[in-house]
């Protein structure tokens, strides 16, 4: 009885401490967000732009609803189109069973949510291209001082180049080199993805090289004692040992890629979020600014989610003492 009454207060104080930490960690960001939203709506009421006032939080919230309704309506139209087509096909084949029916694709305009999908697809394509180049190159840089010295000038030279400078070159090269009879990808998509890859491969390359060159000598001794071949050494020792830093690089790369993508899409007219922002800017209706603001928030949220996902992966590959 006595022990229980002693245990209770300590449990209680611990719960209190937890509650305080919870309130602080959740409460302070919430208050900050509230202040931001307040300042934003105040600015919205006072700042006048060419087509009325700056849209505030309420206008943005309404616009999210509109964009969602647009999306639903477009999907409904698409479904209706395919139903009509199916009926026509049935009728056609009843009339002349030997005839050849040509399927048509629905050619509606992409909605905001379709554009999010396109952007994600583009950024991942660029990211995969970048990783496939940067990780092997980084491993070679980390293993060989000579190779590193040879690659280093290019890293230093091309790392700071803006996507806007790369894009025209990439677009011209894509038009010149990619002309298949049945294109699998849109040219705009390819140009955007390659630009993303060019700008985002550097953090992975640098971190992989660093990870590989700073492997614990003990691990390499294990490889020497066992006389592992070059590929076995890289695959079984070097790569796993440098995974935490490789993933640090990949995480940075994906962040850079997502940021670069919006600019690339604007110029290349790849039907993603960048194009959405550009089109809204060009059409200049009273809703556009609010829709651009929605896009900004969505771009930010997706970037945040991508970063969290990569962080989780990074933690999953950090073993034992290397775990942070």
């Amino acid at each position: 009885m006595n022990e229980a009454s002693n245990a209770l207060p300590s449990l209680r104080s611990r719960l209190d401490a937890l509650a305080v930490a919870g309130v602080r960690n959740l409460g302070i960001p919430l208050v900050a967000i509230a202040i931001f939203v307040g300042a934003w709506s105040l600015a919205a009421r006072t700042i006048q732009v060419s087509f009325g006032s700056l849209p505030g939080p309420a206008a943005v919230a309404t616009e999210i609803g509109h964009l969602w309704q647009d999306h639903q309506a477009e999907r409904a139209r698409e479904q209706a189109f395919y139903e009509r087509q199916a009926e026509r096909k049935k009728a056609f084949l009843e009339k002349n069973p030997a005839g050849e029916w040509k399927e048509r694709k629905y050619a509606g305009r992409p909605t905001f949510f379709d554009q999010i999908g396109t952007s994600l697809k583009t950024v991942f394509t660029g990211f995969v291209i970048a990783s496939l180049i940067a990780v092997p190159l980084g491993v070679l840089c980390g293993l060989s001082k000579t190779f590193n010295l040879a690659v280093n000038p290019f890293v230093q030279l091309f790392k700071p180049v803006s996507p806007l400078a790369w894009l025209p070159i990439v677009m011209i090269l894509v038009s010149a080199l990619y002309n298949p009879a049945h294109p699998l990808f849109e040219k705009a998509f390819l140009s955007s993805a390659i630009t993303v890859a060019l700008c985002s491969l550097w953090p992975t390359l640098i971190n992989t090289a660093l990870g590989v060159s700073s492997i614990d000598q003990d691990y390499l001794n294990v490889a020497r004692v066992l006389r592992l071949g070059w590929f076995a050494k890289v695959w079984k020792i070097v790569l796993p040992a440098s995974l935490p830093l490789i993933f640090t690089g990949l995480r940075l790369s994906l962040g850079v890629g997502w940021m670069v993508l919006i600019a690339a899409e604007m110029l290349a007219q790849n039907p993603g979020l960048g194009k959405f922002v550009w089109d809204m800017f060009q059409n200049g209706s009273s809703q556009t600014l609010a829709q651009i603001e929605v896009a900004v928030l969505v771009i930010g949220l997706i970037g945040f989610a991508l970063d969290r996902a990569m962080l989780a992966l990074q933690r999953a590959v950090s073993f034992g003492s290397q775990a942070r």
Binding site: V222, R224, V225, A241, L243, Q322
Partner: peptide, 20 residues
């Protein structure tokens, strides 16, 4: 002339591979 598996080495820190 070189390291090889005919000599089993036990190091001071066991230096196991932490991912295995």
């Amino acid at each position: 002339t070189d390291a090889g598996p005919d000599r089993g080495v036990v190091f001071q820190s066991p230096c196991l591979l932490p991912w295995r």
